[in-house]
């Protein structure tokens, strides 16, 4: 199965990259753009056929390594 994982900074934690992009969008005339958050997107092939097992594995990967849960949150989908 393939896991598609998104890791972003938690809401409320300053995202300096997001702010810089927001300012750039604003100066390009996109006055309707706001609250830009930058994150990471990862794809992982998980060698499991059982969805529950794959889910548990990906959750563990996120908790242990892929996200730092002090500052980041993660979400993923399995296909």
């Amino acid at each position: 199965m393939k896991a598609k994982i998104h890791v972003t900074l938690k809401q409320g934690i300053l995202d300096p990259q997001g702010k810089a992009i927001e300012h750039a969008l604003d100066s390009l005339g996109f006055k309707n753009a706001g609250n830009v958050r930058v994150g990471k997107y990862m794809e992982v092939d998980v060698n499991e056929t059982d969805k529950a097992k794959a889910d548990a594995a990906v959750k563990s990967m996120c908790e242990k390594l892929l996200a730092n849960t002090i500052i980041e949150e993660y979400r993923y989908e399995l296909q």
């Binding site: 900074l9 300053l14 300096p16 990259q17 810089a20 730092n68 002090i70 500052i71």
Partner: peptide, 15 residues
Amino acid sequence: EAGLLPGAMLRNKSL
């Protein structure tokens, strides 16, 4: 990251 000290590092405010 190892949890031997509390907290985490973010990108510098200025980038």
